[in-house]
Design a binder for these strands. Structure first.
Lengths: 222, 222
DNA sequence: TGACAACCGGAATGGTCATTCCGTTAGGCT
DNA sequence: AGCCTAACGGAATGACCATTCCGGTTGTCA
């Protein structure tokens, strides 16, 4: 047992051994190189076969042994999380900028659109988003932060009159969840995802909305 | 239960051994009883823990051994399919009636609503629907039939002017898929599912739709 | 250049299922 | 009542994986 590490670093991303010293120094060159190879391999393997693909496939694709994969990511979950973080980072950034825009509705739409693009290109992201959306409590991870920012953007878009006022953050969770899943299931066809988004978007901005409260009567039908 | 289907035995439902003789005669009483117990147990176990729940849990809940479960359903998949068929049957019936209604829009909405209810009460149904929706080729199973009928209903609702004309059957697949997943992920809260449906519905019936074709520009934003 | 960790690879381990096998039990029919 | 066989139950089997272990390799630093 050689795990003298005392520093926890960021939970999950840089786990057990010391890939990076407590202060952030890089360590051995081959280790850094391998970490990158593993990330790239995981990216492609998980994208192609979903997160259920065996760790050994990731290792093979990376040209290393499983042991090496586990040296860098103490757990499969940690590996997935690391990749997801890569995808989410830019989205968080975009959401931040959007909050400062004077066109909240457009910014919100573009955020959804960007999210959709990522979703299409990397399936596991969908699962991660969906899982996070479960309860948007406090923002501790990037995923949570993204959800939080998206909610803020939603509120601003509502204040601006672009989005119907009766939509709640929980609905956003559900919509994202559904969006994610639909894209997951039809990964190959980005066009479909775009159509789906357009429809939901129209539902969000409708001027003559079906009451969301109780009765569930179609506003336009009948 | 009520499976008005005229068809002999649906492939997969009554497999290997002779739960029913080739001509359809019932067989031993205890066998029939156990089959029912297994179905009920599977229903509740899968609903509670998802289809990934072990067959042994189903057997225990039914008060029988795994061997007995396999005597009635040659495969886990066959068991799931049998339960799903129970849930889909009534929906197919409703869709049929809806096709004869003079209010296609309302009928379509009510079908979605009923589907949603089933989805909320039985998670695996979501997966099954989503899986089927993949390609709505020919209607050979009940699932396919449901999708086909729903598409027909959609077309009629469009002809009646309730649903925007640029919505395609593929979009329906995606929407159902997303709907299913959202309900799967938030099984406990039917209220949320209803809200989600209302939003999507408004997107479907909007009078001022975002073009579904190319540019992906928000119609109301900016 | 030599020594010492840090790293590496991949076989071995442990756990979780679906599915099969077979000795035992008990409906149904004469 | 007694036989014959469909049905049972549940231990055993086989696959698939994540994760761990440890002897061998190789950057790095003095």
């Amino acid at each position: 047992m050689t795990i003298p590490v005392v520093n926890p670093t960021v939970a999950g991303s840089e786990p057990g051994p010391a890939v990076a010293a407590p202060d952030g120094s890089p360590t051995r060159a081959d280790a850094r190189r391998n970490r990158a190879k593993v990330m790239a391999a995981a990216q492609s393997v998980f994208a192609a076969h979903g997160v259920s693909a065996p760790m050994e496939d990731v290792a093979r694709q990376a040209g290393v042994g499983v042991g090496t994969v586990y040296r860098h990511f103490s757990t499969k979950e940690a590996l997935v999380e690391a990749i997801v973080a890569d995808h989410i980072g830019p989205l968080v950034e975009q959401a931040r900028l959007g909050l400062e825009s004077d066109d909240p509705g457009g910014a919100f739409f573009r955020l959804l659109q960007a999210l959709l693009d990522e979703l299409v290109s990397f399936r596991p992201l969908a699962e991660a988003i969906a899982a996070t959306a479960e309860h948007l409590a406090g923002a501790r991870s990037q995923k949570d932060e993204l959800v939080t920012l998206a909610v803020a953007l939603l509120t601003r878009a509502q204040d601006a009159g672009t989005i119907r006022p009766d939509v709640q953050p929980e609905d956003l969770e559900l919509l994202l969840s559904g969006l994610a899943h639909a894209c997951d299931r039809h990964g190959g066809n980005q066009g479909n995802g775009a159509r789906y988004l357009a429809i939901v978007w129209d539902g969000l901005r409708t001027a003559d909305p079906t009451p969301l409260g109780g009765g569930l009567l179609p506003a336009g039908g009948h």
